[in-house]
Design a protein around this nucleic acid. Structure first.
Length: 144
DNA sequence: GTCGGAAAAG
DNA sequence: CTTTTCCGAC
């Protein structure tokens, strides 16, 4: 567990500059990025349970991802394989039965000394937080 | 559609 | 190490 300025998050969410995988944007980070922007709600959006999101337009998400990584031949088949590698890493898991739906493991994300809410001692409080609050808190840490 | 092995790229 | 590419199996 690593500690940031205002929040503490698991090591899977922490990628220092020197870390091998940090040189290029991580897929799950990119997903979080799209999820945060309203203009992509027709392409990918939060839906269902806490941390759950649905890819409404798989081809478009793949196109956007390919654009970011300069991989013109990216498609949902390949993007989804990358997402499946996250299962064992406990970053994501599949919401079975729901098409194009995955779920972030925010249960491993613990916020401490949050400016407005005191949830460090109450796991229930974390569940009450909206995903957008979590993302808004996490993204500044990951961005340059 | 989803899964996960295998090989390979960076 | 993460992700890309390819693909057989269900």
């Amino acid at each position: 567990m690593s500690v940031g300025c205002c929040i503490a998050f698991p090591d899977w969410a922490y990628k220092p500059e020197s870390s091998p995988g940090s040189r290029q944007i991580q897929l799950w980070h990119f997903i979080l990025e799209l999820l945060q922007k309203e203009e992509y709600q027709g392409v990918i959006a939060w839906q269902g349970d806490y941390g759950e999101f649905v890819i409404k337009d798989p081809d478009e998400v793949a196109r956007l991802w390919g654009l970011r990584k300069c991989k013109p031949h990216m498609n949902y088949d390949k993007l989804s394989r990358a997402l499946r590698y996250y299962y064992n890493k406990r970053i994501l898991h599949k919401t079975k039965g729901k098409r194009f739906t995955y779920k972030f493991n925010f249960s491993k994300v613990v916020l401490v000394n949050y400016p407005l809410l005191d949830m460090a001692s109450s796991p229930q409080k974390l569940e009450e937080l909206t995903c957008s609050v979590i993302i808004t808190a996490l993204l500044p840490v990951f961005n340059d």
